[in-house]
Design a protein around this nucleic acid. Structure first.
Lengths: 229, 229
DNA sequence: CGTCGACTTGAGTTAACTCAAATCATGTGG
DNA sequence: CCACATGATTTGAGTTAACTCAAGTCGACG
């Protein structure tokens, strides 16, 4: 596939006249990363942003004690590092490839020029940033107002939705990473999965989880109910 | 002052040709709120967004047990509720006046039209959303990776910076509200303020706080040090 | 002066953490 | 195909930061 066609298939650039796809193809840099490789680090100078073509990337913060909090996990078609294009110019967090990844890198200045000429590109970007703000809102709510069982229940229900509402879901990330995404540690996650199993909310088999009591999980996710000892 | 001049003085609309200020003046609605009054609630249909002219507004989430987490406190010149203009159309959180407030309300459709015609308005909005994402990043980091003393220390240093680096700061919100902003409860905040005083980090007098040991606070805020019992 | 809300202090509980060890899973070299 | 190294996950035991509940104390205002 040509670079132009790949660019045209990125949601962010949807609805853009073809000649702009050509312009973008002129400024783009193709960058690949291997599993575990750092894409950028918090505080780095942001000279542009990336769009993921394949693979998944985690965006995360680290504490001095090396505890990790995952902010997002992004996949193909999604932009990363765009905040540094529009505010400040340093990356606010770290990005690392969860698996082999291919990305397009767009230098800042050229992209800003393009956005100034293209209202629909600007609107696309505004929509993306707004969705991310909305998700952060939920993340803060989860971290601050729910306990770990509630966050886990919400995540399982989210996975179920992505699987078209199936009762059988498969964790698409390692449990240690899931713990970091939920703002906890592997030991705690493991204990809570075991407890949910004991209480008949789920059935657990490695990364395969069957949702046995959907209402029970929903109650937990809403913070209405709690998980007894 | 005329409506047009008030609009022209809003940072978001800075750099916009005068005729657009006139357009905005045509679609704006003037709305005032009293202390404690709800401006919008989570889940409400977002038919537009607000810009604060005077007073301060808190944006917050509530748990079923009525525990509150403040996401932001915004003041004059800042837009609120803009996320619902660009993504989904429901407000992701609640907004309430912390004191008497005057706002301008801009209906969604007309504003979107305007932004499509004005690259500089779009860029201004992108910058604002990006700054908010950056702040959320810090909030999540604080909630997940720091304990309450660290968050409080960071807040005190932030206040000090706003006061041009003065060692004497004044809390501009009630302590109960500060607790909610820091993701804790008034009792815990009170105990930690007392402990910081005992350890000679600060001197406390009602809402007046003197920063005695700046390095000590910085160590806490970075999560490098902890507060002994 | 009394009342109300905001704040502080005390006592006890608990969710989630740390540290340590056991178990399981996977992949490599022999 | 086996034996072991490596990393991921689970389980156990103990600790702790922060919570809940309850009881003051303080300050502003009618």
């Amino acid at each position: 596939m040509t670079t132009i066609k790949q660019i045209a298939s990125i949601p962010l650039f949807e609805g853009l006249p073809t000649r702009y796809h050509e312009d973008l193809a002129m400024i783009v840099a193709d960058r690949a990363y291997t599993r575990g490789q750092r894409i950028f680090s918090e505080g780095d100078e942001g000279t542009g942003f990336y769009v993921i073509l394949s693979g998944r990337v985690k965006i995360f913060k680290l504490s001095p004690e090396r505890k990790e909090q995952i902010l997002h996990i992004f996949g193909p078609g999604e932009p990363i590092g765009e905040v540094s294009v529009f505010a400040g110019q340093r990356f606010p967090a770290n990005a690392e490839a969860l698996e082999g990844c291919r990305t397009f890198f767009f230098p800042r200045a050229a992209f800003v020029e393009l956005i100034k000429r293209n209202p629909s590109l600007a609107m696309n970007m505004l929509a993306i940033l707004s969705r991310r703000l909305r998700r952060f809102t939920e993340l803060v709510e989860d971290l601050s107002l729910k306990e770990v069982p509630g966050r886990l229940a919400a995540y399982l229900l989210y996975l179920s939705e992505r699987h078209k509402g199936s009762h059988d879901v498969v964790l698409d990330i390692a449990k240690g990473q899931l713990a970091s995404l939920l703002g906890t540690i592997p030991e705690t996650l493991s204990r809570i999965l075991a407890k949910m199993t004991r209480h008949g909310l789920i059935a657990l088999n490695g990364p395969h989880i069957r949702i046995v009591d959907r209402e029970g999980l929903e109650g937990l996710a809403q913070g209405e109910k709690r998980l007894p000892p």
